[in-house]
Design a protein around this nucleic acid. Structure first.
Length: 554
RNA sequence: GGAUCUGUGGCUUAGCCAGGAUAUAGCGCCGGGCUUCUAACCCGGAUGCCGAGGGUUCGAAUCCCUCCAGGUCCGCCA
């Protein structure tokens, strides 16, 4: 809908100016679209922009009015306002189930996200990764791409050697009702303290790393036990957040099936290779000061080697490979992107996000200084339950619990996704527990209001007579939804969708306040109900693409 | 020291990559609105040298340069 009109205007401008540059821009309050082409033509035509705009508007008017687009020059700007057929078409399209879905694509896409080390529970920093990744994945699915979402389990690194050592030497028992990943973190923290107190343990850790790399059966079982325990807990947390993965890939597999050894063999042959005890790559030609280490002098591989193998495998299976990574991985990510093409392999695109810290400093699993995702979900859910109980005391407890759960997960996801990924943030309990405007509950509430109206309305006939400003502005915002999905996917910026959904809720709430639906009559009532249905459906689709439940009542 | 991201009213934040019309919204503050479709709501008001300085341009929050402040990274960890 939007594109059809956009292209009609672009073509009309091209005809009138003789240039493909339409200089189309958002017009804000002035109109639906504007062109600043008069500024550019001022030089060529040696005329004042205001006069050029006026003349062009005259030329464009007859062409575009037949397409139901109104043209007006305001100073040097040429403004375009979309007519009623656009508004009606938008509402009609938005009634369809799955509104916003784009045509099916054939490019296979792989998104890797979260991939936190299995040495403890997810904390509020990790879930920024999960929520950006999961929202992006949902948008890709909606945009019609065949997609696989992967979690890469670092199951053979030093930190796993440390935890597994802790499990076999420290005799720490699991507490009653202790979640597996929290138990693993407790052992990991204790093992690190032991390691600090007695540096001789370091040799034992290194022995374990050598053994796991050789595939020593006992060590494989020991590592696997710890990793599976922890990943089980992490998966529970992800499920609570509506985050899903299609596949969990184990780093160790690339060693055991010799894929990594093959990659190392080819890396050695590169002119960038430096094989002097350690195997590393000199990437100075690409602007990297530090060498990229692949294999230690004791012959064991470092993370980079396994990661290269994993990415070669992904490039083999997918056309587009996207990794969601924290800012701390910027350097290693850039080295990976520089190295893969040397092997003739498609490098991944990396979506980076900046750090989440606590007011008292950065989070560390090893130091035990973190707010776990589980703790956050529990607190926010408890707070949401209190809120629902105050607002809806008549509802049975089960129902209030369900609503609280959806509100809490929505609030957490929205609070994280609404901030641009390139901004570092400081976790704030007060903000996390706020359910007012610019929050998921605000958007969920708009959806619940729409649902409530439709439930009370009974039968009605679809109608498309819109007259008030509030109706038209709401319909025009609805019309933008498919375009927003496309922007999210092409720019890999899911936070654009969070802004869109909030603005949609704003416009619905204003419409709700000024234009009575159930109390209106005849054609107006039918049209408003149709608009409410379109808004409800669009809110639902937008919320679900953000991984937030669209509640019928709250 | 080098690399990189960020700096927008008291606080949080959109816009920046693809430069244009009075810079977006929320929290907080001041004032108003529930006998009316769910007030997790709506309406109005005050609050901005868009970090500083230069440059490019008819036009800069947006592009370029310098500087200042903060985050992150610079390991034979992951």
């Amino acid at each position: 809908m939007y594109y059809t009109v956009y292209n009609e205007i672009r073509e009309a401008l091209a005809v009138c100016t003789g240039s493909e540059e339409a200089d189309l821009t958002d017009a804000g309050e002035h109109a639906d679209l504007a062109s600043t082409v008069a500024f550019r033509l001022a030089k060529v035509r040696k005329m004042a922009p205001v006069r050029i705009a006026a003349e062009l508007a005259e030329e464009l008017r007859p062409i575009l009015e037949s397409r139901d687009v109104f043209v007006e020059a305001t100073g040097p700007y040429i403004n375009f306002r979309f007519g009623m057929s656009y508004v009606q078409g938008a509402v009609r399209a938005a009634l369809a189930p799955g509104f916003g879905a784009l045509p099916v694509k054939t490019e296979r896409v792989c998104i890797e996200h979260t991939s936190a080390n299995p040495n403890g529970p997810l904390h509020v920093g990790h879930i920024r990764n999960s929520i950006i990744g999961d929202s992006l994945a949902r948008a890709f699915r909606k945009a019609g791409y065949p997609l696989e979402v992967e979690y890469y389990i670092n199951d053979m690194g030093r930190q796993i050697a440390i935890v597994s050592w802790g499990f076999s030497h420290l005799g720490i028992d699991r507490r009653e009702n202790e979640k597996a990943d929290h138990y693993v973190a407790r052992v990991y923290i204790a093992a690190n303290r032991a390691l600090e107190a007695d540096p001789s343990i370091k040799e034992e850790i290194e022995r374990r790393m050598a053994l796991i790399e050789r595939g020593d059966p006992e060590m494989v079982i020991a590592f696997r036990k710890v990793v599976d325990l922890c990943v089980g807990g992490i998966r529970e947390t992800l499920a609570r957040l509506n985050v899903t993965h299609d596949r969990f890939v184990r780093e160790n597999d690339f060693v055991r099936n010799h894929h990594m050894q093959g990659v190392i063999g080819r890396l050695k042959l590169l002119p960038e290779a430096q094989n002097d005890g350690t195997l590393s790559l000199d990437l100075s030609a690409f602007g990297f000061e530090k060498e990229y280490v692949i294999r230690r002098s004791d012959g064991t591989s470092v993370y980079a080697a396994r990661d290269l193998a994993y990415h070669e495998w992904k490039a083999h299976n997918f056309d587009v490979v996207i990794d969601v990574l924290g800012a701390d991985h910027k350097l290693i990510g850039a080295q990976l992107q520089a190295t893969l093409p040397l092997l003739g392999v498609l490098p991944p695109e990396i979506v980076h996000f900046e750090f989440v810290s606590l007011p008292e400093g950065s989070m560390s699993t090893r130091a035990g200084t973190f707010v776990s995702a589980d703790e956050l979900i529990d607190e926010v859910t408890a707070r949401a339950f209190d809120e629902v109980t105050v607002r809806r005391p008549e509802l049975p407890e089960d129902e209030r619990r369900d609503i609280a759960r959806s509100v809490a997960v929505g609030a957490i996801r929205y609070d994280i996704i609404r901030v641009s990924p390139e901004k570092s943030t400081v976790f704030d309990w007060k903000e996390a527990l706020n359910f007012e405007r610019q929050s998921a509950p605000y958007i969920q509430y708009a959806h619940a209001r729409a649902s409530s109206i439709l439930e009370k309305a009974g039968g009605y006939e679809e109608a498309f007579s819109f007259a008030t400003d509030h109706e038209i502005r709401l319909a025009k915002q609805i019309a933008r939804f498919p375009r927003v999905i496309e922007l999210v996917v092409t720019e890999r910026r899911p936070h654009l969708l969070s802004i869109y959904a909030r603005e949609l809720a704003d416009l619905f709430n204003t419409f709700y306040r000024y234009d009575p639906v159930l109390k209106s009559e005849g054609e107006t009532r039918n049209s408003r109900l149709t608009l409410v249905r379109a808004a409800q459906n669009t809110l639902k689709e937008a919320l679900e693409t953000l991984g937030i439940d669209a509640l019928g009542s709250m």
